[in-house]
């Protein structure tokens, strides 16, 4: 398996992707959060609509307040805080954006448009396919490779069960921790965020323990 990239090429590639994405979009790359939002597209679309509505509502409230002030010469009342519709969706929408200091607050606070998250997942697939095909590594197969057969299991039924259980742990764990190897590992550690450094150390540690168990014990 010597036709994989040397470590430095991989490091440069990953860094270019993460930094380039941040530069271009003012946001941070995170695959598990893209999954989360695409899978909950109904709720997410509602949030997007509400956010768009709030933008209009707030403009209207500000206009009314200004007109009132003009008319009565009083202190303009502050527009009401648009919290009502967010109550049923506590995990999203309230977290302050890391780059809120740059550019206009309102736009940089919003999560990336939902459809771009679906595009991210699809283009990872296409990028992976191009890499595999161009390296001559594409191989349609019904197992997970010799490594998996030797280290984990060669029984196809056990394999399917383990892949599913592992996948559930990955999906549940990344969302509970608030990020995965791209969100916490690259983007978060890149910002030296304590929460990401902690999460990365813990998931790496857990993976090391489990890998040793699979390799040596089980």
């Amino acid at each position: 398996m010597s036709n994989y990239w040397p470590w430095w090429a991989g490091a440069i590639g990953l860094a270019l992707v993460a930094v380039g994405f941040t530069l271009a979009t003012n946001r941070f790359l995170g695959v598990s959060s893209a999954w989360d939002r695409v899978l909950h597209w109904r709720a997410e679309r509602q949030i997007e609509r509400q956010n768009a509505l709030f933008a209009d509502d707030r403009a209207l409230a500000e206009m009314l307040a200004a007109a009132t002030a003009e008319h009565f010469g009083a202190h303009p009342a502050a527009p009401p805080a648009p919290d009502a519709a967010r109550e049923d969706t506590p995990p999203r929408g309230q977290e302050p954006g890391p780059t809120a200091g740059e550019g206009s607050q309102a736009t940089s606070l919003r999560p990336a448009p939902l459809f771009t998250q679906a595009v991210l997942l699809l283009s990872i697939f296409v990028g992976g396919g191009i890499a595999a095909a161009s390296a001559g590594r594409f191989d349609l197969r019904l197992d997970m490779g010799e490594g998996f057969s030797e280290i984990v299991t060669s029984n196809p039924i056990t394999m399917v069960v383990l892949l599913f259980v592992g996948g559930v742990l990955v999906g549940f764990g990344t969302r509970l921790a608030g990020g995965c190897s791209s969100g916490h590992g690259l983007s978060g550690c890149g910002r030296l965020q304590p929460v990401s450094l902690l999460a990365t150390a813990v998931f790496f540690g857990a993976a090391v323990v489990m890998s040793f168990l699979l390799w040596k014990v089980i």
């Binding site: 695959v31 598990s32 893209a34 999954w35 990872i124 997970m144 998996f148 984990v152 383990l162 892949l163 259980v165 592992g166 996948g167 559930v168 742990l169 990955v170 999906g171 549940f172 764990g173 990344t174 969302r175 509970l176 921790a177 608030g178 995965c180 190897s181 791209s182 916490h184 929460v195 902690l198 999460a199 990365t200 813990v202 998931f203 790496f204 540690g205 857990a206 993976a207 090391v208 323990v209 489990m210 890998s211 699979l214």
Partner: peptide, 21 residues
């Protein structure tokens, strides 16, 4: 949720070989 989530994720990654991407 950070520590329990990361433990589950790391374990699942080692078993299935997959992080979300």
């Amino acid at each position: 949720g950070v520590i329990p989530g990361a433990v589950l994720f790391g374990t699942g990654w080692a078993i299935s070989g997959g992080c979300p991407a």
